[in-house]
Design a protein around this nucleic acid. Sequence first.
DNA 1: TATATTTTTTACCCATAGTAGAAAATCTCG
DNA 2: CGAGATTTTCTACTATGGGTAAAAAATATA
Lengths: 233, 233
Amino acid sequence: MSKADDHREAIQERKRQERERRVQDILDAAKKLFFLKGYLKMTMDDIALEVRVSKPTIYQYFKSKDELFFSLLTPASEKTEKALGEIERNLLDGRYGSGSTLLHDIFQALYRVYQTDPDAFRILQLFQQSGMVWALNEDVRRDLVVKARITFAQGRSILQAAMEQGLIHRRDIYPLNDVVWALFIGIVQLEDTKSKGKKGNRFLKPTLEMAERLMIEAMAADGRGGACPNLEP
Amino acid sequence: MSKADDHREAIQERKRQERERRVQDILDAAKKLFFLKGYLKMTMDDIALEVRVSKPTIYQYFKSKDELFFSLLTPASEKTEKALGEIERNLLDGRYGSGSTLLHDIFQALYRVYQTDPDAFRILQLFQQSGMVWALNEDVRRDLVVKARITFAQGRSILQAAMEQGLIHRRDIYPLNDVVWALFIGIVQLEDTKSKGKKGNRFLKPTLEMAERLMIEAMAADGRGGACPNLEP
DNA sequence: TATATTTTTTACCCATAGTAGAAAATCTCG
DNA sequence: CGAGATTTTCTACTATGGGTAAAAAATATA
């Protein structure tokens, strides 16, 4: 009965693909509507209509509106993880000659993730207020917390290695990592708000550049930009 | 008819006070419930019950749930304005001897506002996502934008004066101001999220202190903290 | 082609923001 | 005080939207 088995298997495979595609369609529709109308105004019926499917079909694939919504996060989270992972690898391989280039790369990496998927980034920020606004399903919450923990651990690991290599000044790693992350997120959020309605955040880039410069001056071993040139003539 | 007029006036006055008090009662209840249950789970019926009044009565005083909610902002906004105003005055009177003490005071001031009213501060952060989550009533939105603009203008004005007095290094004021603000907000938000459930944000203070130190090193004219002590023996 | 399984849909429930209009309280003035 | 005017509050509703039970349809198996 290997032929019958093959048949069954092929059918299973097709079905799996179909399910996957439907999930993707739903996610796309949700994303589109979220950025068109915002979270509260995007209804499950809207999404269903957009996918040309009925509401319960969506609930077949996602337990709740929250879960569907936060599923939009995953790609950006993975991208961040990948980008930071690469920096970490380069750092551990001793490929960074200065703290300023390292910090520059970190900011660049985060900025690039933001650019390729600003939507997901905004959702990530929203999550930070999850407790305020939502009553998240426990599963969803746990998932998000895990994602966050991974990113933070990566950040700390990078800072740790950078300190050991003398690229940046020694400081308490936990708050330092928090400061960098909070700074980036805070700026994206702030400039996003400011340029509400207009397309393109005119202020985001200069503000991020300013932040990078300040952090380099404060953190990087080579960051004083020739402030004390007289010491070593 | 001056007696009758007085009477009428006195009655008007009492009514005004009663209205004011009722508004305050509603705000208090809303605040309490918001931090107990979060925005979505705090219902207008809950609030009405808490104030021991019926729902339409609340709608007598607040146009919508959003408006009621964002009205909770006003006190913190005013406190911030006052605190920054005081710093600005001291600065203009030449009472700051160094950039580091100025920056310290700014962080302190914001932190104090946060402490006396952490709830309002969180709402302020939520506002930054207003477009994402809410479809704010135009009036409410405008009001919030005005409040934000005032705070930002104050911040820039302080930085401007500080630069002119040589307390901090010269930089582009707009992005610099944004960085400071984004940093503070970002940290409060981040640590708030991290310490969800536990009482007291164990990490907030050290992280803010770290941020302050970094900003002083990067911004203040006296910020190199003895990094170049040999220059002036 | 008949039966079993999976997927989708119709038709509903329930909670809650918001409101219309009645009822009650309060004020005005003879 | 008491009749009418005004303001405030409440009862009873509508509308919307998340979520679901169970029927219907589609698909697979044999």
